[in-house]
Design a protein around this nucleic acid. Sequence first.
DNA 1: CGGAATCCCGTCAGATACTG
DNA 2: CAGTATCTGACGGGATTCCG
Lengths: 127, 127
Amino acid sequence: MYASSMEKEENNTVCPLKYALNLVGGKWKLPIICILAREESVRYNSLKRKLVGITNMMLSQSLKELEENGIVHREQYNEIPPRVEYSLTKEGRSILEPLESLSEWGKIHMDKLRTQSPYCGECREVK
Amino acid sequence: MYASSMEKEENNTVCPLKYALNLVGGKWKLPIICILAREESVRYNSLKRKLVGITNMMLSQSLKELEENGIVHREQYNEIPPRVEYSLTKEGRSILEPLESLSEWGKIHMDKLRTQSPYCGECREVK
DNA sequence: CGGAATCCCGTCAGATACTG
DNA sequence: CAGTATCTGACGGGATTCCG
């Protein structure tokens, strides 16, 4: 059994920045959040199809940790066949804005690096 | 030799958010950035003393990757004994704001979780 | 003083198989 | 359909040693 991301912290005097980054850490949590951000409510297998290459274990584990941390809501319908819908909580939606500002920074920074190499920056041709 | 964080990406169509998170990923980069954020310019050994528990390898490797990615500036003075000063670049300083908004989110979110348990939320006494 | 080279281990994440 | 259990490999990060 894997430990939840948060259980690794020994004391509760955690840097809030590290705390936030841990919530969305790991290979799949950001992709999951991105899908849920634009789809309102998604079934397990639908998520799995969109996340190309993910295994059942990584998907269910990531969703579980996101749920434990209040980012994702899990709604189970006792039907046959079983149906489970995942969605972002209000808390989960509120992290989108800080993440987008980081993404904006990344976009700008990537462009600035590209003007240094391998392009000459004047004519956009490769040096 | 360790690969730089960025070399792991196979294609250059990288999500700018992942890109930004990779720049500050790893165990020590955020602490380094935090120190440089409030100190303007810091010597290698001064950094090492503040980062309790870091090894020379992790410090020099982290600084090197931060420098390669344009976050940190390295100024070497050819004196005896040798002296090297590290500081945040302008680009490096510009990432502080997105990080702080994430940190703000983390602070609020941590508090909300705390009102759920182990405190009752009404009187702030332990259940 | 400011690193680099080498070795080593714990943890994360993937593969595979099985279940209510 | 929506997961869980177990095994395994790869990689990030630490300890130690050495260098200009």
